[in-house]
Nucleic acid binder design. Structure first.
Lengths: 345, 345
DNA sequence: CTGTTAGCGCGTTCAA
DNA sequence: TTGAACGCGCTAACAG
C-alpha cells in the first residue's frame, strides 16, 4: 500500500528541498517577515537582528525565491527580449549592452528567437507574456495583427528597436532603413561608380535597405541594377554564393550588401577566384559598430551603433519601471548611422 | 482620505489587471480548477465544458501566469544557460539548437553572460538560482569553489558543456581542448611546416588549446614557438593586431589561431599588407561547424559541432526532467572534433 | 467528470 | 522595531 502510494506520484520526487524564508527565520529566532525586511529593506531592521538574520542566511544558503516574490509583488524583474537570431553578429553588441545595463539594476533577460518569422514572434510573445515580464523589447516594428493587439492591451512597457515607424506600439528606438539605403546609393554615385549590384539577405529590414538602394539609384537614372537575394540569416557562405551568381551577370564596379557578413563572403570568394577587392570590384557592407569597425581594410560600410541602442532601450525601460510616477512621455529616438569609406577610415 | 490612501501606494499603479483563472471560470460557469484542467489535462474534462472554457479563454484573452504555476508545482520550465559571451560566433549554433529544442518541449531559456569571468559566473548562478530553474547549463568546467558547492548541493540537473573533466558537477558534454591542440600540432607537423606561430585569445579554453599546440610541438623537438595573446573575446581587429605583432618576430610558415575570428583578422591584415595566404603564410583556425564550414578557402580549421552539443544537452535535460523515474545514469559525452584542411575540403 | 480545500514562498498591511 | 493575517494565481489531493 504504502509502496504503491509513493510511486503513484508519477513525476520524479522533486522534493521541495529549497530553503525558505521560514527556515531562515526559525534559525535566526525571528519571523519570516523580519527576514524579508532584513534583506530588502535593511534600514527597517535593528542592526543586531539584521546581523543574526544575515548569519542565518549564510549558514542555510538561502536563495530568495523570485517566483514567489514576483507573484506577491506583481513585479517579475524580468525583461523579455525578442530577437530574430543570434547567428549574425549584427545584434550582439546591442544584446550585451542591454543585458548588462538591465542586470546592473537587478533585471534578468528572457530571450526569444523569432527567426525573422512573424508567427514565431506571435507565439513567443504569448508564451513570454506568461512569465509576466516587466517589459518587452521587440526587434523591428512589423508584427502580426494579433501580436500588436495583445501588446497594445497590455500595460507592460514595450520598446521596439532597430527600426522607425509612424505608429509604434509604445516606445521606439532605431533608425530608418530607407535612409540607410538611399544614403548608400548616393555615396556610391558620388564615388563615381557606374555599374552597381546588390546582394541581400531576405530578412525584412535587409530587404528594405536593399530596395531603397535600388530605388535611389533609379531616381538618379540608374536602371536594372542586378540583385541577388539569399535566405536569412546572412552567412559567409551565402555571400560567396551570391557573389558567384552576380558574376554570372557580369562584373560590376561595386556591390552593396545588406550586411557585413555577406560582404566578407564576397571577400572570401574573390580571394579564391583571384579577383581583386576593391581594385576590380568594390564592396560595401552594413553592420554594427563594434563588429564593423575593422571589418576589412578593403570594405566600406554603414555603421550603426548597436551598443547605443541597447543602452538607450535599457535606460528607457528602467526609467519607466523605477522612475518617478511623472508620466513618462512617449519615447522616440532616431539613432542614425554613419557611412565609413575605406579611404576615409 | 480616499485620495491620500490611493497615492500612498508609492509605486506606480501597477493595477493587477491581468485576467486570472477565476475570471475565466466565472465566465465559463465553472471553477478555476476546471479551467486549469481544461487547459493542462484536457482529457480529464468533458468535451462540452472544455469548449465553454476555451471560449472563455479566448474572449478574455487569458494568459496563464507561469509564476504562479511554477510556484504551485515547483517546476518553472525555465533553463538557465550560462555563456561567456555572444560576441563571438563560436557559441551561436549551440545556443540556437539548445533553445529551440527546449522550446519545443515548453521550456524557456534564461541567459546569463559571464564574460569569461568566474566571479561573474558565481554571481549569475546565485541570481539565476532565485528563478528556480529546472536545469542549469554551464559553459566550461572551471568554476569558483563557491559555485561548485552551491551547484553540488542543488538537486537541479546540471550540464557542463564545451569541455571535458574528470569530476563534473553532474552531466558533461564536450570535447578535450588539449586533444584539439595536440591534433593541430601533429597535423601541421605532418604537413611539413617548419616555422610555427600561435595566436590566441586569452579565454581559458582558447589558451588551453594554444598551450597544447605549443607543448605538442615541443614534444616533437620544436622549441620557442612565438605566441601572441590578445584579450577575449576574439575579434577581427584582435586578429589583425596579433598578426602584426607576430610579423615583427619574423614571418612564420603557419599560424595556428585559437579561433576562426582571429584567423579572419589575419586574412584582413594580410590583404592590406599584400601578404599571400596561404602561399606566404598558412593559417589555421578553430570554430563551430556551421560558421566555420565555409570560413575561407585559404583557411584550414578545426571543426566542432556546436549544434550537436546543444541538441545533446537539451535532450539529456529533457530526459532527466520528463523521462521515466528510472534513475538517469550520469551522462558523459565526448563530442570530438574534426580537422578540415583547405586542400582536402 | 467537477468542486473544495489547502498550500507553494513571499510581501503588503495593518496592529502591537 | 517586529509580528500576524491575508492574498498573489495556480495546482495537488481528495471528496463527491
Amino acid at each position: 500500500m504504502d509502496e504503491s502510494y509513493r510511486t503513484a506520484a508519477g513525476q520524479p520526487d522533486q522534493t521541495h528541498e529549497s530553503v525558505t524564508l521560514e527556515d531562515v527565520a526559525r534559525l535566526a529566532g525571528v519571523t519570516a517577515m523580519t527576514v524579508s525586511r532584513a534583506l530588502k529593506r535593511p534600514e527597517l531592521v535593528r542592526e543586531e537582528t539584521r546581523q543574526r538574520v544575515l548569519d542565518a542566511v549564510r549558514s542555510t544558503g538561502y536563495v530568495p525565491n523570485m517566483l514567489a516574490g514576483a507573484l506577491a509583488t506583481n513585479r517579475s524583474h524580468l525583461v523579455a527580449l525578442l530577437l530574430p537570431t543570434i547567428a549574425t553578429s549584427i545584434f550582439t553588441d546591442m544584446v550585451q549592452t542591454m543585458m548588462s545595463t538591465l542586470a546592473a539594476s537587478g533585471y534578468q533577460t528572457l530571450l526569444g528567437l523569432t527567426g525573422y518569422l512573424r508567427e514565431r514572434e506571435e507565439q513567443l510573445v504569448h508564451t513570454l507574456l506568461g512569465r509576466r515580464p516587466d517589459a518587452i523589447v521587440l526587434t523591428g516594428t512589423d508584427h502580426s495583427a494579433l501580436t500588436r493587439d495583445r501588446l497594445l492591451k497590455t500595460k507592460v512597457p514595450i520598446i521596439e528597436i532597430w527600426d522607425l515607424t509612424d505608429d509604434p506600439i509604445d516606445m521606439l528606438i532605431g533608425f530608418s532603413h530607407e535612409a540607410v539605403g538611399s544614403a548608400v546609393a548616393r555615396h556610391l554615385l558620388h564615388k563615381r561608380y557606374r555599374r552597381f549590384a546588390v546582394l541581400s539577405a531576405d530578412d525584412p529590414r535587409g530587404m528594405r535597405r536593399s530596395m531603397s538602394i535600388v530605388e535611389e539609384l533609379r531616381r538618379h537614372g540608374v536602371e536594372n541594377v542586378p540583385m541577388e537575394i539569399l535566405p536569412a540569416p546572412a552567412t559567409l557562405q551565402a555571400g560567396r554564393e551570391g557573389f558567384a551568381r552576380l558574376l554570372e551577370r557580369g562584373l560590376p564596379d561595386v556591390i552593396a550588401c545588406s550586411t557585413d557578413t555577406l560582404a566578407q563572403g564576397i571577400l572570401a570568394e574573390a580571394a579564391k577566384r583571384g579577383i581583386g577587392i576593391p581594385q576590380e570590384v568594390a564592396v560595401m557592407g552594413f553592420g554594427d559598430l563594434s563588429t564593423a569597425a575593422h571589418v576589412h581594410p578593403a570594405l566600406s560600410t554603414v555603421r550603426i551603433d548597436g551598443a547605443e541602442i541597447g543602452r538607450l532601450a535599457a535606460e528607457a525601460l528602467l526609467q519607466r519601471l523605477e522612475g518617478k510616477p511623472s508620466s513618462p512621455a512617449a519615447l522616440r529616438v532616431d539613432t542614425g548611422f554613419t557611412i565609413v569609406d575605406r579611404e576615409s577610415a
